[in-house]
Measured scan of single mutants.
Amino acid sequence: MLYVKVKTEDGEELVLEVEGMTEDEIREELAKAGFKIEEIEVYEVEP
């Protein structure tokens, strides 16, 4: 499983499960949803 931890400019932290997306695609999708991203951390969790 691939997850991203996202910190927004307003200090909110989100953890999202993503599969088959690049970091650029993740940033693009979050921007479309109205999030202003300060930091993204991508990590993989073994089942």
Rank of each mutant, 00 (worst) to 15 (best):
E29I: 15
K5E: 01
E19D: 08
M21A: 05
I26F: 03
G11E: 02
K32Q: 08
E19K: 13
A33Q: 12
D10T: 10
Y3N: 03
P47A: 07
V45S: 09
Y43E: 02
E29T: 12
L2S: 09
E46S: 10
E44H: 13
V15G: 02
V18I: 10
R27S: 03
V18T: 03
M21N: 05
A31E: 09
T8M: 13
L14K: 04
F35W: 11
E17S: 10
I26T: 01
L30K: 00
E12A: 11
A31Y: 11
A33L: 14
V18K: 02
E46F: 14
E38N: 11
E46G: 09
E41Q: 11
G34E: 01
I40E: 01
E25G: 04
K36D: 05
E28P: 01
V6M: 05
V18G: 01
T8G: 07
V15F: 12
E9A: 14
E19S: 14
E28K: 11
I37R: 09
K5D: 00
G34W: 03
E9N: 09
E29A: 15
F35Y: 13
Y43W: 11
K7A: 04
E25V: 04
L16P: 00
E46D: 11
T22V: 02
L2F: 14
E39T: 14
I37H: 06
E9R: 12
T22Y: 03
E9V: 12
G34L: 02
K7S: 05
A33M: 15
V18R: 05
G11L: 02
A31Q: 11
V6K: 00
K7D: 02
E28W: 12
E39L: 12
K32A: 09
V4F: 07
G34S: 02
Y3W: 14
E25A: 07
P47D: 07
A31G: 07
E13N: 05
V15N: 05
V45K: 10
E41H: 11
V45I: 11
E29Q: 11
E46N: 13
T8F: 13
E19P: 06
Y43Q: 03
G20N: 09
E28C: 09
V4M: 03
A31R: 13
I37S: 07
I26A: 04
E28M: 12
L16R: 02
L2G: 05
V6E: 00
Y3G: 02
I37A: 08
E25K: 05
L30Y: 04
K32Y: 06
E29C: 15
T8Q: 04
V4N: 00
K36W: 04
E23A: 12
I26C: 04
K7F: 11
V15A: 03
V4Q: 00
E25Y: 04
V15P: 00
L30M: 06
V45L: 10
I26E: 00
V15K: 03
G34F: 03
E39I: 15
E44V: 13
E17I: 15
G11R: 01
G20F: 09
E38T: 15
L2V: 08
A33N: 05
D10E: 08
G20I: 05
V15R: 06
E17L: 15
T22D: 05
K36I: 07
V4A: 05
E17Y: 15
V6H: 01
V15Q: 04
E12H: 11
G34D: 01
T8E: 01
G20E: 03
L14W: 14
L2M: 12
T22F: 04
V15S: 04
K32G: 04
E19H: 14
T8N: 06
E41C: 14
K7M: 09
E44Q: 12
K5W: 14
E25R: 06
L30R: 00
E46V: 11
E23N: 05
I40K: 01
E12V: 13
E29G: 07
L30E: 00
K7Y: 10
R27F: 07
F35C: 06
D10C: 12
V18D: 00
L2W: 15
E39D: 12
E13G: 03
I26W: 07
E38S: 13
T22C: 06
V42F: 14
V42Y: 10
V4P: 00
E17A: 13
Y3R: 14
R27A: 03
E41W: 15
T22I: 02
T22E: 04
E9Y: 11
E46I: 11
K5S: 04
A31T: 10
E13R: 05
V4K: 00
E44P: 08
I37N: 07
K36A: 06
V45W: 11
L14G: 01
K5H: 07
E28Q: 11
I40G: 01
E12W: 14
E19N: 12
V4W: 07
V45T: 09
I40R: 01
E39M: 12
E38G: 08
L14P: 00
E19T: 15
Y43N: 03
R27K: 09
R27V: 07
V45E: 06
P47C: 10
M21I: 06
G20M: 06
Y3T: 06
E29P: 01
E23C: 14
K5A: 03
E41F: 14
I40F: 10
D10M: 07
I37Y: 09
P47M: 09
I37F: 08
E44I: 13
E17K: 15
E29D: 05
V18Q: 01
E12P: 03
E29S: 12
I26V: 06
Y43V: 06
Y43R: 05
Y43K: 04
G11W: 02
M21Q: 05
E28I: 10
K7I: 12
M21G: 06
E13S: 09
L14M: 10
E25D: 06
E9I: 14
Y3M: 09
I40L: 07
A33I: 10
E29V: 15
T8I: 05
M21K: 10
K32S: 06
P47S: 09
E46K: 12
E38P: 03
F35H: 03
Y3P: 00
V4R: 00
P47H: 07
L2R: 15
D24A: 13
E28D: 08
E28T: 10
E25H: 03
D10A: 10
E38K: 14
K32P: 00
E44D: 11
K5P: 01
E29F: 15
E38M: 15
V4S: 00
V18P: 00
M1L: 14
E23V: 14
V45Y: 11
M21L: 09
K32W: 06
F35M: 04
E28L: 10
A31L: 11
R27M: 08
M1P: 07
V6T: 02
V42T: 05
I26N: 00
I40Q: 01
K7W: 13
E46C: 13
G20H: 06
D24G: 08
F35I: 07
V42D: 02
E46Y: 14
P47Y: 09
E17N: 08
K36Y: 05
E44W: 15
E41K: 09
F35N: 01
V6S: 00
M1I: 12
E38F: 14
V15I: 13
E17Q: 14
K5T: 05
R27L: 10
G20R: 08
K32N: 06
A31H: 09
V45F: 12
E41G: 06
E28Y: 13
E9G: 09
K7C: 10
E23Y: 14
E29M: 15
E12N: 10
E41R: 11
P47T: 09
T22A: 03
E9F: 11
E23K: 09
R27C: 07
T8H: 03
L2A: 06
V4L: 04
G11A: 02
D24N: 10
V42C: 06
L14E: 02
R27D: 00
I40W: 08
Y43A: 04
E25F: 04
E12Y: 13
L16T: 01
A33R: 15
K36L: 07
E39R: 10
V45P: 07
V45N: 08
V42Q: 03
D24Q: 12
V4E: 00
Y3C: 09
M1R: 15
E13L: 11
R27Y: 09
G11M: 02
Y43H: 05
G34M: 03
V42A: 04
E9D: 08
K5Q: 03
T8P: 02
V45G: 08
I40M: 08
E28R: 13
E19R: 13
E12F: 14
L14Y: 13
Y43D: 02
E13W: 15
E46M: 14
K5L: 07
K7T: 12
A31K: 10
M21F: 08
D10R: 08
E19F: 15
Y3A: 04
E23H: 07
M1C: 11
E29K: 12
A31V: 12
Y43F: 10
E44L: 12
Y3V: 09
F35S: 00
L2T: 07
M1N: 07
G20T: 04
V6N: 00
E9K: 14
L2P: 01
Y3K: 10
E17R: 15
T8S: 05
D24E: 12
E12Q: 13
E9Q: 12
E29L: 15
D24V: 09
D24R: 11
D24H: 09
E9H: 09
D10N: 11
V6A: 04
E23M: 15
E39W: 15
V18L: 06
K36C: 08
V15M: 10
I26R: 00
V45C: 11
E38W: 14
V15C: 15
E38H: 13
T22W: 03
D24L: 10
Y43M: 08
V42L: 07
E23W: 14
I37Q: 09
Y43L: 08
T8C: 15
V18W: 07
L2N: 05
I37D: 07
E23Q: 06
G11Y: 02
T22H: 04
D10H: 09
E39S: 15
D24W: 14
K32M: 07
V6W: 08
E38V: 15
K5Y: 12
E41S: 10
M1V: 13
E9C: 14
V6C: 08
L30D: 00
V42K: 04
V18F: 15
E46Q: 12
L16A: 02
L16H: 01
E28V: 10
